[in-house]
Amino acid sequence: MIFQIDFKAGKPVYLQLVDQIRYAAAAGRLRPGEPLPSIRPLAEELRVNRNTIAKAYAELESQGVIETLPGKGCFLKVNSSPFTKPVRDKLLLTEIDEAVVMAHHLQIGRDKFLALVQERLDYFERKSTQHDSAE
């Protein structure tokens, strides 16, 4: 997996890594059971503090995205959020609200907004199946 770190993005580096791994998992670029890069080589390659990588992995573990097998490393988990359904809904709603607010300020109407959401869902689904059939 190739990571892109941007110090100018204004987002903490460990969160950039978290986002990229979550994105890769959603797009099927990283599949359940697949290993994540070990901390040391990844830290050296990106030239970031090893604590940063460790923090990103700890965050992903607490979100239930990856699991650590002692002595073996970190692996992408079968998609199973540790949260209950109401909590999951609420977490997603917060994000959706942000997009809705954004759409309002960009004068994007309801139909266009819904169409865009459909399009993105299709996009991720397509990517995911592409990666599956590429095996």
Binding site: E44, R47, N49, A54
Partner: peptide
Amino acid sequence: RREFIETVIGAYQSGDP
């Protein structure tokens, strides 16, 4: 310079964080 920093991150920092 690059190698120097990679060494500090890898060889030094990873030992016992």
